[in-house]
Simulated scan of single mutants.
Amino acid sequence: MTAFARHEEQTELGTLNWEIRSVNHRYLEVAFRLEESFRPMEMAMRKLISDTLSRGKVEVSLRYKAPEQQQDKLEINETLAQNVIDQYQLLANRAENDAPLDLMKVLQWQGVIQSQSLDQDALNALLMQSLEKAVADLVASRKREGASLQTMIEQRCQQINDIAEQVRQRMPEILQTHRQKLQDRIAELQINLESERLEQEMVLLAQKSDVAEELDRLQSHVNEVNSVLQRDEPIGRRLDFLMQELNREANTLGSKSIDTDTTRYSVDLKVLIEQMREQIQNIE
């Protein structure tokens, strides 16, 4: 489900600012953007998210700001800084490049500047608590989006039912119209056709154009869609399958059509089904 959540936690240990984006995906795929100091917590964070979400491509971003008193003093990892300088010098000699080293870039190297030590265990606990709140905000966002999608799908299902009823009611009229056209054509060509033969032709035409089963299945699938929408579980894949079944019946209705209105109804059905299918790709 497409959704977005932002959550900020301000404490004496610093400020944690989470941003979580979610788009539809066949499976659950989670990507993190974290500072290196928080990487050891990634497995725990993945578990927290997988315990809540089952599908979706989820991007999780964390910005951490240390307390003001921690930012007044800088500590430099001299060993790492020297290693960066040495490696630069080695590459510069090999490339015969005598350009001076920009020391500011050395300071910007990940891990060269270190903040004063914090209670990492306490910070990690805060990290998980704030992530749990951010994920809860994401779930709430997904539910709001889901409610909107549910309303749209239910409306399309009602339109499909209405079309199916219109086709069902019009079939006797359509067959009668074709009977009259056939009789008019016979009279025009001055063909002496026995009444029994005419009835046989009409029976064959009725059998060929009979769409009662397709209409029954169409409405049965619509009922199943409405039922699935009420379930408190991931339903995206089930709905996607039902869209395929609905589309199959709409195609069969079109292939059996002997009337321009029925053909138009088939096209209208496929438009409605495609509108639902596109949105269902966003449902978990």
Rank of each mutant, 00 (worst) to 15 (best):
residue 2 T to M: 06
residue 6 R to N: 08
residue 12 E to C: 10
residue 14 G to S: 13
residue 19 E to A: 03
residue 23 V to S: 00
residue 27 Y to L: 15
residue 28 L to T: 13
residue 33 R to K: 08
residue 37 S to V: 12
residue 41 M to D: 02
residue 49 I to G: 00
residue 51 D to H: 02
residue 51 D to V: 00
residue 56 G to Y: 00
residue 60 V to E: 04
residue 64 Y to P: 05
residue 67 P to V: 10
residue 68 E to W: 05
residue 70 Q to T: 11
residue 71 Q to E: 12
residue 76 I to Q: 07
residue 79 T to A: 15
residue 81 A to V: 12
residue 82 Q to K: 15
residue 87 Q to A: 15
residue 91 L to R: 10
residue 95 A to E: 09
residue 96 E to T: 03
residue 100 P to G: 06
residue 111 G to N: 14
residue 113 I to A: 08
residue 115 S to Q: 12
residue 118 L to C: 04
residue 121 D to R: 10
residue 123 L to C: 11
residue 126 L to R: 13
residue 131 L to H: 01
residue 135 V to P: 03
residue 136 A to Y: 00
residue 140 A to N: 10
residue 147 A to I: 13
residue 147 A to Q: 14
residue 149 L to Y: 00
residue 153 I to P: 00
residue 155 Q to R: 14
residue 156 R to D: 13
residue 164 A to C: 08
residue 164 A to G: 06
residue 172 P to N: 14
residue 176 Q to C: 11
residue 182 L to W: 02
residue 186 I to F: 00
residue 198 L to E: 11
residue 201 E to Q: 14
residue 203 V to E: 07
residue 215 L to V: 14
residue 224 E to P: 02
residue 224 E to S: 11
residue 224 E to T: 14
residue 226 N to L: 10
residue 232 D to N: 14
residue 243 M to N: 15
residue 248 R to T: 04
residue 251 N to R: 12
residue 255 S to F: 03
residue 257 S to L: 11
residue 259 D to V: 12
residue 259 D to W: 05
residue 261 D to Y: 04
residue 264 R to T: 15
residue 265 Y to R: 09
residue 267 V to P: 02
residue 282 N to S: 10
residue 284 E to V: 06
